[in-house]
């Protein structure tokens, strides 16, 4: 092989080597911003006024807004007992007694999952978490004497229902 051919081959080898050589890997690092995981109800941090509480409660149970005179009277009744948890328990119980729009026990036990979803939405304006759903379903199915008004009483007088 003469020198000229050898040079050409070397050149060709270098060209081929250059074309087929490994390339430097470029590693791109994708980061995420740190996010604090909060409970689903964490954004509820404002207490309802008595007027907001009663208006919402009344509309929820009777499906009509409370009239202004009736509202003022309800507020007066609530203010007449110092322990607000007690006055709320009483007024919720009174309204539950009169409410025309309560699900029946049969409806609750026929489809407890729907009942739980509906109740969370109705009182807490959100869906239950998986854990909440599981707890509620277990509670309902293991308490065959439970009536829907008891569940409603608990939801309507819970701390979360008092906040928005």
């Amino acid at each position: 092989m003469n020198m000229q051919i050898f040079t050409k081959l070397c050149f060709l080898f270098i060209v081929v080597l250059g074309l087929t050589a490994c390339q430097e890997d470029i590693y791109e690092v994708y980061e995420i911003n740190s996010v604090e995981v909060l409970p689903v109800n964490a954004q509820k941090n404002k207490a309802k006024t008595d007027a907001q509480y009663v208006s919402i409660l009344y509309t929820n149970f009777f499906q009509v807004p409370i009239g202004p005179n009736k509202l003022l009277e309800a507020l007066d009744a609530i203010r007449s007992i110092g322990d607000k948890q007690i006055s709320y328990d009483i007024i919720v119980s009174k309204y539950l007694n009169q409410s025309p729009d309560l699900p029946t026990k049969e409806e609750m036990y026929a489809d407890p999952e729907t009942f739980v979803y509906d109740t969370y939405k109705r009182f807490l304006t959100r869906q239950p978490t998986e854990a909440e759903l599981a707890w509620m379903l277990n509670y309902i199915t293991s308490n065959p004497s439970l009536a829907p008004d008891i569940v409603y009483l608990a939801f309507a007088t819970s701390n979360e229902h008092y906040y928005y």
């Binding site: 009277e73 009744a77 609530i78 007449s80 009483i90 007024i91 007694n97």
Partner: peptide
């Protein structure tokens, strides 16, 4: 009157 209309007969 307020209590009679909003409390009375509560359970």
């Amino acid at each position: 009157s307020p209590g009679q209309n909003h409390f009375m007969n509560f359970k």
